[in-house]
Simulated assay, not measured.
Amino acid sequence: MSAADADAQLVERVKQGDVRAFEMLVVKYQRRIERLIGRMVRDTDLVADIAQETFIRAYRALPKFRGDSAFYTWLYRIAVNTAKKALMELKRDPLVSETALAGHHEDGDETSRVENELTDGETPEAVLASKQIVATVNSAVDALSEELRQAITLREIEGLSYEEIAEVMNCPIGTVRSRIFRAREAIAQRLRPLLGTQEGERW
Rank of each mutant, 00 (worst) to 15 (best):
A83C: 14
T175M: 02
N81I: 09
I157R: 10
E122F: 03
Q132W: 07
R92D: 13
T123H: 02
E164G: 11
L160D: 02
S97H: 02
I173E: 07
A166Q: 03
E117L: 04
Y76E: 00
E110Y: 10
E106N: 12
E146A: 12
V141K: 15
T136Y: 10
Q132F: 08
L148I: 05
Y72D: 15
I152D: 14
R149E: 00
E164F: 05
E117C: 05
I157S: 13
A83M: 11
C171M: 15
Y76F: 15
A83P: 06
F181T: 12
A86D: 09
A151M: 01
D107R: 15
I157F: 11
P94G: 02
E185S: 04
E115Y: 04
R77L: 03
T82F: 00
E163S: 13
S69Y: 14
T82K: 12
V176F: 00
R155M: 07
G103C: 09
K85A: 15
E146S: 06
A166V: 03
T136C: 12
E115S: 06
L75G: 09
Y162Q: 03
I152G: 14
V168P: 02
S139P: 00
A102I: 01
E125N: 07
L118Y: 02
I78R: 06
V168G: 09
V141N: 08
K91C: 01
Q150N: 08
E146M: 11
H105Y: 02
A135P: 03
S145W: 06
T153A: 06
S69G: 10
F71L: 05
E98W: 07
D93G: 03
A183V: 06
L75F: 01
R149Q: 09
L144V: 13
E164V: 04
K84C: 01
D142Y: 15
L128W: 05
E158R: 00
V114L: 13
V134H: 08
R113K: 07
L154A: 12
A143E: 13
T73M: 05
A151K: 10
E146N: 11
P172Q: 03
T73V: 12
M169I: 03
M88C: 04
S178P: 01
M88S: 14
V168T: 09
A83D: 09
R177E: 05
A86W: 09
M169N: 04
